[in-house]
């Protein structure tokens, strides 16, 4: 299957000092929905900037829809659609006029546009609202219009930069529906960045996780989760407790133990059973547990395992998805 995005040793250095992207190489196949994940500052925006020809790479090359991003930048722009984080539609114009504006910028002939516009507006369910000024649109309608504008040149590759940021649940699932439909009906290749793990999990065929400008992982969601090697038990002990790593590791079923201050992240083969055994072990060793969580691995866990940011930048609780807290065995 030919690749629609092909990246070879792509690097970007800002001001000769900060290495924003280092030696990135990957390929995205035609018709693939490709998730591009990573913490803030990991190099996502820089990579998208290079692939959409806004930034020139310092070294390495990439082809989008078969065109070189530097040598054939104009052809890349013609063959791609981009939906950015900001809404850029003119609020004083109607939805239709906004669509026409981007069609003009992409050089879509007027006759082609007149055929295509009703289809696009129907796809994003804005047919009735197209004649109204964008000023009166809801956040979700504006977002859907952006999507239509990104598709007006019938791109081969669609770049979506956090397309559902700040949207309500209904609009988000609607946007996912359109993306799946586009892939099925037109074999559109989608390159998507998101911070919503369930979005990446449910939508993407493969997920790249980028951290510190490097490719940290690239696989399907299932494989990324499988890599974790089992269920997760997270244990927080009261301060003053001595290091329990070796005693936990000796517990039957435990695969790995990672300690970060008073928190232990443990992978086990059977979370529910192991948790009880671990608790007994900790008590026997004279330790005192303040909190314990048991969870089946999610993409968020795989992501955190790869990027390891969970305990570094913010408090551990706020970084854990709600559903991780369901197994609350012991109160504080």
């Amino acid at each position: 299957m030919p690749s629609m995005v092909a990246v070879q040793n792509l690097s970007k250095v800002y001001d000769h000092s900060v290495l924003a992207v280092q030696n990135l190489s990957f390929e995205v196949s035609e018709g693939e929905i490709f998730g591009f994940l990573g913490p803030n500052g990991a190099g996502k925006s820089t990579t998208i900037g290079m692939l959409t020809t806004l930034l020139k790479p310092t070294s390495g090359t990439a082809q989008v829809a078969g065109y070189d991003i530097v040598e054939e930048a104009s052809l890349v722009r013609q063959a791609t659609g981009v939906v950015l984080q900001d809404n850029t539609a003119d609020p004083q114009m109607t939805g239709y006029e906004n669509l026409l504006f981007f069609a003009d910028l992409q050089g879509v002939p007027r006759s082609v546009f007149q055929e295509r516009a009703p289809e696009l507006l129907a796809l994003v369910e804005l047919s009735d609202a197209a004649g109204r000024s964008v000023r009166g649109y809801s956040g979700g309608m504006k977002r859907r219009l952006e999507l239509a504008c990104g598709l007006v040149n019938e791109p081969k590759v669609l770049f979506l930069d956090e397309p559902t940021l700040g949207l309500d649940v209904q609009t988000r699932s609607a946007v996912w529906k359109y993306i799946r439909k586009l892939r099925e009906e037109r074999r559109l290749t989608v390159f998507l960045t998101t911070h919503y793990m369930e979005e990446a999990d449910g939508l993407c065929d493969r997920i790249a996780i980028i951290d510190h400008g490097r490719m940290a992982a690239l696989d399907s969601s299932e494989n990324l989760k499988e890599r974790l090697g089992g269920d997760l038990v997270e244990l927080e002990v009261k301060s003053g407790t001595s290091d329990l790593t070796s005693s936990i590791r000796a517990t039957p079923g435990v695969v790995t133990v990672v300690r970060q201050n008073s928190i232990y992240r443990i992978t086990t083969r059977n979370g529910e059973r192991s948790a009880v055994a671990i608790l007994d072990g900790v008590r026997n060793a004279g330790g005192s547990v303040s909190r314990i969580l048991v969870s089946k691995p999610s993409l968020a866990d795989a992501y955190l395992e790869v990027t390891g940011r969970a305990f570094r930048d913010e408090s551990s609780d706020s970084n854990l998805p709600q559903f991780l807290r369901r197994t609350f065995l012991e109160g504080q």
Binding site: T52, T53, L54, S74, L75, R77, Q78, T80, V82, L84, Q85, D86, T88, F102, L105, Q106, G107, N153, F159
Partner: peptide, 14 residues
């Protein structure tokens, strides 16, 4: 500042 220029620059207008 509003991101409009960026959106215009990713189109093929010269």
């Amino acid at each position: 500042q509003l991101g409009h220029l960026k959106r215009i620059l990713v189109t093929s207008v010269s």
